[in-house]
C-alpha cells in the first residue's frame, strides 16, 4: 500500500514540477556563474566561488542556497497537503473505507512525505551535479580544511550531504503532517507549516533567546557543510538528526492522536 501511495504521489504533476524546479535552481546558478565568471573568492554564498574550478560545487552551492527557503517551502506544500488535501477532495473517506486503519494510513502518508524530503534534496544535488559537469571541469574536491578529496569521494559526500539535508527537513515535515490533520484546507496547512519554519529561523537569529536555539528545528539545516571538513565532523550532524527524531516523535504522536480521533466528514 505504501508503494502504491509513493507511486501515485510521485506521479502527481505538482510533485514532479516541484522536483524539477528544485533541480533547476542549482542548474540556473551554474549557468549564471558560467555567464558571469562567478564570484571572486569570499564573495557570495558558501561554495559558489569554487564552482568555476569544479562543477561538483554547483550541487553544494545549490544546497546552500535552497536550504533556507526553497526546500522547506516545497516540503511544506507536500506535507501540508498530505491529509488535508485528501480531505478537501473528499477522497479521505474512501481511503478510510479500506481495512488498513487510520494509524497505518497516517504512517504511509508520513513515510511518503519523508521520501519526498529526501527526493527533493537529492533533486537539488542532481541538478547541480549535472549542470556543473556540463559547464565546468570536474576534479579533486577541496575541503573547507584545505585538503582535497578524489572526485568520486567528493560526489559521494555531496550526495550524502543531500541525504542529510533531506533528513534534517523531517522535523518540519512532521509539523506539517500534524497541521494537515487539523484542517480540511490544504493551503492553510501549507502556509502554517511555512510560518513555523520562518518563525524558527527568525528566533534562531535573535541572540536574546539563545537558550532555545538548540531546540529550533531550523538550527542544524547547514550542518551538512561539516561533511566537507577533514576530518568530517559528525557532532553537529548527529545533534541535528537527533533533534529531527525528537520533532518526529512529538509531532508524529500529535498527528496520530488527532487523526485517529478526528471525525472524517469529507
Amino acid at each position: 500500500m505504501w508503494r502504491a501511495e509513493l507511486v501515485s504521489q510521485f506521479r502527481r504533476r505538482r510533485v514532479k514540477a516541484l522536483l524539477l524546479v528544485l533541480a533547476a535552481v542549482p542548474a540556473l546558478l551554474a549557468v549564471l556563474v558560467y555567464l558571469s565568471g562567478g564570484p571572486s573568492n569570499g564573495q557570495g554564498p558558501t561554495f559558489l566561488d569554487e564552482v568555476t574550478r569544479n562543477g561538483v560545487f554547483a550541487a553544494l552551492a545549490g544546497l546552500t542556497v535552497t536550504v533556507p527557503f526553497f526546500l522547506p517551502l516545497t516540503v511544506a506544500v507536500v506535507a501540508g497537503d498530505s491529509i488535508a488535501g485528501e480531505a478537501s477532495l473528499g477522497t479521505l473517506r474512501y481511503l478510510l473505507v479500506r481495512p488498513a486503519g487510520r494509524s497505518r494510513l497516517l504512517l504511509i502518508k508520513a513515510a511518503t512525505v519523508g521520501a519526498y524530503c529526501l527526493a527533493a534534496a537529492l533533486a537539488v544535488a542532481a541538478g547541480g551535479l549535472i549542470a556543473g559537469a556540463i559547464l565546468f571541469p570536474l576534479g579533486r574536491v577541496t575541503t573547507l580544511s584545505a585538503t582535497s578529496l578524489s572526485l568520486g569521494a567528493g560526489i559521494g559526500r555531496t550526495l550524502l550531504a543531500a541525504l542529510i539535508v533531506g533528513a534534517s527537513l523531517f522535523g518540519m515535515a512532521a509539523i506539517g503532517l500534524f497541521i494537515s490533520t487539523l484542517t480540511d484546507v490544504p493551503v492553510g496547512a501549507m502556509a502554517a507549516t511555512i510560518g513555523f519554519a520562518v518563525l524558527s529561523a527568525v528566533l534562531g537569529g535573535i541572540s536574546q533567546v539563545r537558550a532555545i536555539h538548540p531546540w529550533l528545528f531550523t538550527k542544524g539545516w547547514f550542518a551538512f557543510s561539516d561533511l566537507l571538513r577533514d576530518p568530517v565532523q559528525w557532532t553537529a550532524i548527529g545533534k541535528d538528526l537527533a533533534l529531527q527524531v525528537a520533532y518526529m516523535a512529538v509531532f508524529g504522536a500529535a498527528a496520530w492522536a488527532r487523526f485517529t480521533t478526528k471525525d472524517v466528514l469529507a
Binding site: A249, V250, F251, A253, A254, W256, A257, T261
Partner: peptide, 16 residues
C-alpha cells in the same frame, strides 16, 4: 480513549 491518545505527544516530549 480519545483524550488518552492526546497524552502520546506529551509523553514523547517527556521522553525527549
Amino acid at each position: 480513549s480519545r483524550k488518552l491518545r492526546w497524552s502520546a505527544p506529551f509523553a514523547a516530549a517527556v521522553v525527549v
